[in-house]
Design a protein around this nucleic acid. Structure first.
Lengths: 347, 347
DNA sequence: CTGAAAGCGCTTACAG
DNA sequence: CTGAAAGCGCTTACAG
């Protein structure tokens, strides 16, 4: 057991083993060039004293830390939680620490990243959903350290990226409800700044136009708390007043928005409106009706991001790779409703 | 703009401002004892060069880092995501970094915490739900640095703690369904190791016994993926086979379990069984029937934990405080169902 | 194979 | 008010 007063240093271990700090360091980490016998003595002393290296000192000396940074837009969103979990796991396996920071709620990217850079992290996973301008702050960063972007709208020429094909996702979701006879379909995004969601909207518009229907979209904004209230107001506007024909299907571009829409539809008691969403939600099979979703494989996205990052950290020097992880449609019912007043026969 | 090749050091700033590192350091952080004019020159040089302090060096010199550690059981669970978000926010406001680690999935506490200790974090927020043995590893830690426990079963004599009154929560949830005429009520926990959930079960048993009914409880385990399948199996066993009278109400002790139960009840199409849970769930108002919950104010729990931790870090030396944040019952319908075949008049 | 020495970038008594 | 010097704990050329 380590004494709980003050951490034991390498010199303590060396002294206990009857050698010098230099040799002790080599015995514990350096590997080469130490007698087996002496190395064993050092390792035992380290064990007995409960030694663990002071990483600040090591990092200062080596010029980079065995830690990576993770920049996330919002920790309360399950998507990001899963990314963090995967990255932390990969880091832990390699003996790396993980320092996190939040880029949301009005903080600038510089401000968000400073706590990471000032700790000399060896690389960065950036999952903000909004970043990715090739001329931005991240590009600057990516030229001096490995950066992997997650859920980024565009592949940057300076960094690796892992995500989904957003345009195709929007198209596929749209085609799903079109196939069930819908023509007046509303797409709901979170806001113009969420560029991945905007790409999904683009896919939606492509699919609508290809089918000969007019696209119609709106935004709910970013704050989950307010989302349900806004959704009620927004939906009432589009659902029709009995005289004008309203929309018959709703598509949600992202989980946060789905949460709001699901509550709003429940409050309005409109279970007749078809509804499908990008991103799965916990309990979606218990919704009324059960929610059809186009699911992202978030675990794979997080795991691949970590793999790419550590490959770079370990020196891999290939061209930036932009990976797209396949999506999976989970049909649970809500997206398969036919438009009210119309019976489908062919499907 | 900072050059992107190599970080600028304090000595660079000092040189640019025509002074020494000592004075530059004092001008930027130390505060006292530098001419206004010189201080201004240093600050401008720092700004122009894009200087930001190397925290590893600072920490090494000062003996402790301006960073805190957060130990979490599982980042994908919204409860912990909210704790992390709150703590990160508080840390950021104080110029502290946040390094995280996961204590779940078979890692020992020592192993989980090592990456934090080896970085000399100034304090720890520990949210593992299972820890809290007064003689454990954490107690050892708490004697050498500030530790705040979140969601801990017992108040440790060595550290602050923030959470809820778990026994009272179990009692209150139980009394809710008892008030609607239920007598055969099943409590579902996650596993014997989750001691906060076990305390909730204790409250449930107290309430059942006080009402003269026999308590009946089971566990679903920890893995969210398997939970729904296990829940189906478990529920079939308790719901009765038509000849024997089954349970008429189910209580869930924690969010992960609720997710499984909600899916299982949907699959079994048993909307007649009353159901109430501790912890709110996203979309709970869209469930069928809408889910009644006893909600934890997780944001307040996280915020208070951070406040306590930083108070300790800044030197506050009061006795360990064990705070319990009030709960809120959200009645949405699922817990208010009367037992099938029995009509209530009095409520 | 081993150890004395230098140095990573910072802060802080200490002397002026 | 200012600066030269020491030292936080480690690693790594360098010399032996």
């Amino acid at each position: 057991m380590a004494g709980s007063t003050s951490r034991v240093r390498l010199v303590d271990v060396a002294t206990a083993a009857g050698t010098s700090p230099s040799t002790a360091s080599r015995a514990l980490h350096g590997g080469a060039g130490v007698t087996d016998e002496l190395a064993a003595r050092v390792r035992q002393a380290a064990r007995e004293l409960g030694y663990s290296v002071n990483r600040q000192a090591r990092s200062l000396r080596r010029g980079h830390d065995t830690a990576i940074g993770v920049v996330v837009e919002d920790f309360t969103i399950p998507y990001f939680g899963t990314i963090v979990a995967q990255v932390e796991q990969a880091a832990h396996e390699r003996g790396f620490g993980v320092v996190i920071t939040c880029a949301g709620s009005g903080r600038s990217e510089e401000e968000a990243v400073e706590p990471l850079l000032s700790r000399n992290v060896a690389g960065l996973v950036v999952a903000t959903g909004t970043a990715g301008a090739p001329e931005g702050f991240l590009a600057d960063l990516a030229s001096s350290m490995p950066v992997v972007q997650v859920d980024a709208p565009l592949g940057s020429p300076f960094s690796d990226a892992v995500g989904i094909d957003n345009v195709a996702a929007g198209r596929r979701l749209t085609e799903h409800v079109l196939a069930h006879g819908h023509e007046r379909v509303l797409f709901v995004g979170s806001g113009p700044a969420a560029s991945t969601v905007e790409l999904r909207r683009e896919g939606y518009e492509q699919a609508m136009r290809a089918a000969g229907f007019a696209p119609l979209s709106t935004h709910l904004g970013f704050l989950p708390v307010e989302t349900a209230d806004r959704a009620v107001v927004a939906l009432q506007q589009y659902l029709g007043d009995g005289t004008t024909p309203g929309i018959t299907a709703i598509l949600s571009g992202v989980a946060r928005v789905t949460m709001g829409l699901v509550s709003a539809l429940a409050r309005l008691d409109r279970r007749d409106v078809a509804f499908a969403a990008i991103d799965d939600l916990v309990g979606a099979d218990a919704f009324n009706p059960p929610l059809t979703v186009l699911e992202q494989d978030v675990e794979t996205i997080g795991a691949r991001a970590a793999q790419l990052l550590f490959a770079r950290i370990e020196g891999w020097d290939g061209p930036p790779s932009h990976e797209q992880v396949p999506l999976r449609m989970i049909e649970r019912g809500s997206g398969e409703l036919a438009p009210a007043g119309r019976t489908l026969t062919a499907f």
